[in-house]
Structure formats: structure tokens, C-alpha cells
């Protein structure tokens, strides 16, 4: 964990209510895919936890959805503005367990952490499949960039406006060595049921501190109580209680 000032380089809309921000700063604690940063915003007391989409050469990429006053304000921040970030939070995905042909499953703004994960796995020579679920074509993002990385990308939309009509669980491939999932809880529950083998799921919860001090985001697991911010956000399928 590190407390550091970052400078916004770009901040632009990439899909309906979804923005991409790139920031420059000390990224040395951002090492694991699936980790997150906690962003201080003007006039808001609590920081906003946002998953890491990519990190390279001191540039951090965040993709976030405007869901309330804080993220709406964040979407208006201009290039050059400096933000206080707590970096290197959360346990992240365990890439060592992926096997040869891992599956990455994401719904909506669960997609961003899958980018760095896919990049790392492909860098290790793995054959990566990605299944992305969105409500409609207006909500789709990252699919093209994941393809450019070399992943086989499938898309499902609820209204059928892009890819297969239905849910992300309707486009899961037949065989994969391990799975990684991130998205809203109903999607995670469906993925949990639709997958036969082992895998990992990344959860979301309202947080206080984001680094394990306040116990604001605790959940029950088969391996005992876990703080989503510190012991998570990624839990092994074998410990999740649904």
C-alpha cells in the first residue's frame, strides 16, 4: 500500500456512463491484476475504490462507471488535475493457478481488471478466452482491446444488440483450465453455478477505509470472515458461500 499523488493525463467517456482515466504517478505498489486503488475526491469524505484496469511505465488506467455524486464529479476532472490515491490495495487474482487455457468472465464494470489479467496471462504464453456480458451495445467497452491482446473474446448482451442475446453464462466455452470472474453479485452467483471446475471471483462491497482497518466490508466465507478490501476482493470459488 502506498499513498501517492497522481496527475490525470486523460479522462474520457468510452461507453454509456463509463469513463476511462489515465494517471501518472508512483505505480510501484500496483503489481497484481485484480487489485484496486482508493481515490480521494474533492468534497467527499470517503475515498472511492476503483479497480486497476492497466498499469505500464508509471501510467495507471482506471475505467469507472458514474453511479453517484462522487464518480459523476470524477468524470468532469480535467487533465492536469492531481488526485490523492491509495494504491496496491486488495489481494488480486492468482495468475499461478490459471493452467494453460484460462477463462475470464466479466459483466459490466467488472471488465476493467480483466485487461491487466489477460495481459499477464497472455504474456506467460497462456491461451486466454474472455466472456463479457453487458446490457446493450451502448455499454460495451474493452472487447476490442482484449482481442488485440490476443484473447478470444465472446460477447453477450441482454437486449441482443451485440453478440449473443442473453447473459454471460450463455457464452461460456466448453472447456477451460481455470476461471476468473468479476461483476455484479447476481452474475457472480450465476457463474459460480455454471462453472464446473476451480476458479476465483472478485467481489464488490461498500468500503470504509479500503485497507483492512475498519471492518466495514466483511463477508462470511467457508474459510472464515474475510474483509473484501484486504483479504479480497478476490475469493476462491471453493471458499465462497452463495
Amino acid at each position: 500500500m502506498k499513498l501517492a499523488e497522481f496527475e490525470i493525463q486523460t479522462n474520457k467517456k468510452i461507453a454509456r456512463d463509463v469513463f476511462e482515466m489515465t494517471l501518472c504517478g508512483n505505480t510501484e505498489d500496483i503489481t497484481v491484476p485484480g487489485s484496486f486503488v482508493n481515490v480521494k475526491l474533492d468534497g467527499f469524505f470517503l475515498r472511492r475504490p476503483i479497480s486497476v484496469c492497466d498499469v505500464q511505465d508509471g501510467v495507471l488506467t482506471l475505467i469507472y462507471k458514474t453511479v453517484g455524486g462522487g464518480t459523476e464529479q470524477m468524470s468532469t476532472y480535467p487533465a492536469g488535475k492531481r488526485l490523492s490515491l491509495l494504491t496496491g490495495l486488495g489481494n488480486g487474482f492468482d495468475v499461478s493457478l490459471s493452467g494453460e487455457n484460462p477463462l475470464l468472465v466479466a459483466g459490466g464494470v467488472g471488465a476493467p481488471p480483466m485487461y491487466l489479467l489477460a495481459k499477464r496471462l497472455i504474456g506467460q504464453g497462456k491461451t486466454v478466452s474472455v466472456a463479457l456480458g453487458f446490457n446493450s451495445v451502448k455499454d460495451v467497452f474493452l472487447a476490442d482491446r482484449l482481442e488485440r491482446l490476443g484473447a478470444a473474446v465472446g460477447i453477450a448482451t441482454v437486449d441482443g444488440s451485440m453478440g449473443k442475446k442473453g447473459f454471460v453464462t450463455d457464452i461460456l466455452p466448453q472447456s477451460y483450465s481455470y476461471f476468473y470472474a468479476c461483476g455484479p453479485e447476481p452474475m457472480l452467483r450465476a457463474v459460480y453455478r455454471a462453472t464446473a471446475g476451480e476458479g476465483e471471483l472478485s467481489f464488490e462491497e461498500r468500503m470504509g477505509c479500503g485497507f483492512g482497518a475498519c471492518m466495514g466490508c466483511t463477508c462470511k466465507t467457508l474459510a472464515g470472515n474475510k474483509r473484501i478490501c484486504k483479504d479480497g476482493p478476490v475469493l476462491k470459488k471453493s471458499e465462497v458461500i452463495f
Binding site: 469524505f45 470517503l46 471492518m215
Partner: peptide, 19 residues
């Protein structure tokens, strides 16, 4: 174990917790 989540809410210049 404490209370069910969500346990945290933001308020102007502070927060509410129900850990």
C-alpha cells in the same frame, strides 16, 4: 461477526458505520 453489509454510508464531512 457483526452486522450484515452494507455497513458503511457516507455523509458530508464524515461517515456512518454499523460494523
Amino acid at each position: 461477526y457483526g452486522n450484515p453489509t452494507p455497513r458503511i454510508a457516507e455523509i458530508p464531512q464524515g461517515l456512518i458505520n454499523s460494523v
